[in-house]
Amino acid sequence: MHAVNIVTIVDTIAALSSGSLRNHVYMADDGWCSERKGTAELATACYPGQPISWTVHAIDVQSPALISEIRILDLAPHGPAARFTPGPEAGGAPQWTYWSGLVPCCLPPGRYGYRLQFQLGRGERSVLSIDTPALNVLSWTGAQS
């Protein structure tokens, strides 16, 4: 099964200036039936056990954006909250701009919101997060390989 790739673009200067990621995050993926592409409310279509990866890019190259955590929210009925682990960029030391993992196999079909947390530069207000994206876990019935 191919991996689903999610790309996030962050306007780091605007986010740091406002103290919020609201209206400063743009997300897209290569899922065939994902919803709300180009927004922070991206709902990525995926299947249990499918590889998934996130990358982040800053609009301003002098103000970096790094992923510091990805956590699926509200999984109490299905087990503990799932966290994805960071992976190093190809050909270099870990920069935490690339994270990967598997969609938890225990998830029944449904929409699962997740927290995407970023480290934007340095300082006490440089860690910001959004809880608006989601994984839209589909049923294996009719799945394509």
Rank of each mutant, 00 (worst) to 15 (best):
M1D: 10
M1W: 07
M1Y: 07
H2F: 07
V4W: 04
V4N: 11
I6P: 05
I6Y: 05
V7K: 11
T8C: 11
I9T: 15
I9P: 03
I9M: 13
I9R: 12
V10N: 03
V10S: 10
V10G: 05
V10A: 10
D11V: 00
T12N: 00
I13T: 14
A14W: 00
L16H: 05
G19A: 13
N23Y: 10
N23H: 09
H24T: 11
V25Y: 01
Y26K: 12
M27A: 10
A28V: 14
D29V: 09
D30E: 05
S34T: 13
S34C: 12
R36M: 12
K37G: 14
T39P: 07
L42A: 09
A43K: 09
A43R: 11
T44V: 15
T44G: 00
A45E: 14
A45R: 06
Y47T: 01
Q50E: 15
P51K: 12
P51Q: 07
P51S: 09
S53F: 02
W54F: 15
V56K: 07
V56Y: 06
V56H: 02
H57T: 13
I59C: 14
I59T: 10
I59K: 12
D60K: 08
V61I: 09
Q62H: 11
S63G: 01
P64E: 08
L66V: 13
L66S: 11
I67S: 13
I67P: 13
I67G: 14
S68I: 08
S68E: 14
I72C: 04
I72T: 08
I72F: 07
L73T: 07
L75T: 11
P77Q: 01
G79L: 06
G79D: 09
G79C: 07
P80W: 00
F84H: 00
F84M: 13
F84S: 04
F84W: 10
T85V: 08
G87M: 13
P88N: 04
E89S: 08
E89Y: 02
G91N: 04
G91C: 03
G91I: 02
P94T: 00
Q95F: 05
W96H: 12
T97S: 08
G101F: 10
L102W: 01
P104M: 10
P104G: 09
C106G: 01
C106W: 07
C106Q: 15
P108M: 07
P109F: 00
P109L: 00
G110N: 03
R115I: 05
L116P: 03
L116K: 08
L120K: 04
L120Y: 00
G121W: 04
R122Q: 14
R122Y: 06
G123C: 03
G123N: 04
E124V: 12
S129Q: 11
D131V: 06
D131M: 07
P133C: 01
P133M: 03
P133G: 05
P133V: 05
L135W: 06
N136F: 09
V137Q: 05
V137G: 01
V137Y: 02
L138H: 10
S139H: 09
W140I: 01
T141H: 07
G142V: 12
A143S: 08
S145M: 11
S145D: 14
